[in-house]
Design a protein around this nucleic acid. Structure first.
Lengths: 350, 350
DNA sequence: GCTCGATCTGGAATCGATCCCAGAGCGTCC
DNA sequence: GGACGCTCTGGGATCGATTCCAGATCGAGC
């Protein structure tokens, strides 16, 4: 879309129906072809005629029909975005980054969220195909969706997690490195019973965070205890319950590494409920920063994925793919910073 | 879109280009008209032929082009949504509610955020017009955008706030009643110096919250002190600064009513920085709930607007408007609950 | 004067789907 | 047997824009 200068959006003078290019052409006393050339700037038009047509369009409040234009040109200027849950700040930030960046490039964003349902995910993908979007950015739930979109020749960028590595472009954070870094930090403070609370280990996110956690132990020459790796469930309620079970007992871990912000919230709530002080009784680190982590006392040390930047990088990668369809698939890996706050300390010397 | 049964999304067998209805028609050995009738279910088709066409579509992985369909039918099955800032959980929840509800009705959602810029808002509106969306749901920044969309005969629903009352449909919360309720609560606990920290007083949100605050004083027969109504700025940094100024002094208020979640965060941070204990030294209530408010100790008492429900109500209103274009404009008012937490107490007896 | 190229314009085809309408086939009823 | 109604199919117009192409006009150069 050509960005009209401020204040130039014309006043449609009470049209019974929307103005079409035919109306503009008639008003300017030229043919539809000429009107089109004048407005798009492609092809010859005499300057005087061009101005006349533009004025007419202006007066009529003409806005070209994107459907018709896209149909004719067989390209669309919108992208599809599919995330898991907008109420989770991680996905909201991601969408925000994508939105800003794609607007800057003149593309509109179709946003859908599958509420964790593979069927909803495929339905959204089908809608994107129907709308002939220029590309899709998604946080995949299944490998099928990428394959489906690929079959329809729609460029796909997987963000945050990947299914089949190398099957399509992807933008992810270096989960392993970041997980290893925070785990090593806990070990260096003297913790030995460090639990990992995790939601899944099938996607690259969970898998790599687990790998990072383990390699920190190996690097420190410390033994691994698989009983300390615990599945935490998908929502705060479940996570809180699991965390209570984990923390309620004599043999409890002295530190917990929560693999995402929902699980961290569960641990925090469980600690509160059990009267455990952070960090005196329990150290906590989180993968995924969240707004509340800077509000509580002490603040929660977290791997701060910049979700907005992740979204922006995904958009950049998508346009590179569109301009360059043949180039080999690429996985962009962003590093994540660790925001040190007050939620870790040496373990209690019980 | 007809929801295909799971697993029925056909395999496009390596098409050089996407299958069109012409391809389906040829594969099923019928005309394009018949293929169309078979797939849409409108008009006569012999059952045997219908099945043959559907199988052909299946085999080819045919997905009808929404552009072409919309162009022909002059209606679209997508709605435009325009919010201020997705990173704010209020707007993200709103979008989430809209998304879920519109997906349920088979509509796609075009989402844009103006980053507080009126120009970006108008640009997004123009995109919505170009895409011929069925309707637009927005949290308006300017009166102009609603008027612009209205001129192009696009149904508009304003959510959260209204500009010209009655100019279009709207879904809002009862700001006045909720503000009055929480203010009255503070007065009943004995507070007299109750500050209102507010961002704007031009929109209905700010105006009504101010009105509610004032009428609580009037109802209690207490005098108003306009020096206690303070503008707090638009982001957390500014809000924190203003709150520090407000709370740093001998004559500081004993309670603060923050008119939104960003301002409440500013007050919370300022109180922390100044070493003020909540609620012993300072009571705090917020308009707008936010996730962190249940995470901190004590929890922050807040007017809990259900933003998801707000979004869902907006979608419902939009479809009512679409089905019933002539009916008088309607403003739906949702009441907001007050989530009582621990952030208020009787004022210090200094 | 004639050719050639550049500039400029309008007619008509095109994108992919829907839908009106004419007409074929067939059964029923008077 | 003929009129009528119902079922079913295909031809072709249509939505709104873009774009190819033919042709008109004009000025310059030989």
């Amino acid at each position: 879309m050509e960005a009209a200068a401020p204040g130039t959006r014309g006043a449609a003078t009470a049209p019974g129906r929307r103005a079409t290019i035919k109306d503009v052409a008639e008003a300017a006393d030229v043919s539809r072809s000429t009107a089109s050339r004048a407005l798009t700037g492609r092809g010859y038009v005499a300057p005087a005629v061009r101005d006349r047509v533009r004025r007419a369009a202006q007066t009529l409040g003409y806005v070209p029909d994107a459907m018709a234009r896209n149909l004719r040109q067989q390209v669309s200027r919108s992208i599809g975005v599919l995330v898991s849950d907008l109420r989770n700040s991680f996905y909201a930030d991601l969408a925000s980054g994508i939105s800003g960046q794609s607007r800057r490039r003149g593309y509109a964003m179709m946003l859908a969220d599958d509420a964790g349902s593979v069927e909803a995910e495929l339905e959204a993908a089908e809608t994107f195909v129907a709308l002939r979007v220029a590309g899709v950015i998604l946080t995949p739930l299944s490998a099928e969706v990428t394959e489906y979109l690929g079959r329809h020749r729609i460029p796909v960028i997987e963000v945050d997690r990947q299914f089949a590595e190398g099957a399509c472009d992807a933008v992810v954070v270096d989960n392993k490195a970041a997980a290893e870094r925070v785990t090593t930090g806990l070990l260096q403070q003297g913790h030995r019973r460090v639990a990992l609370l995790i939601d899944e280990m099938d996607w690259t996110t969970g898998r790599d965070r687990l790998v990072g956690y383990r390699s920190a132990f190996l690097a420190a020459g410390l033994p691994l205890d698989d009983a300390l790796v615990v599945r935490g469930g998908w929502d705060v309620g479940a996570a809180t319950g699991v965390a209570r079970g984990l923390l309620d007992g004599p043999d409890r871990p002295t530190a917990v590494f929560a693999a995402n912000n929902v699980l961290a919230e569960g641990v925090w709530r469980a600690a509160q409920a059990l009267g455990l002080r952070v960090p005196e009784d329990l150290s906590l680190v989180s993968f995924d920063d969240a707004p509340w982590m800077t509000m509580v006392t002490p603040g929660v040390t977290a791997v701060a994925q910049d979700a907005v930047a992740l979204g922006e990088a995904a958009v950049a990668q998508m346009f590179e793919r569109i301009e360059n369809p043949g180039s080999p698939k690429r996985t962009v890996m962003l590093s994540a910073a660790v925001a040190q706050r007050g939620s870790t300390a040496a373990p209690p010397t019980a």
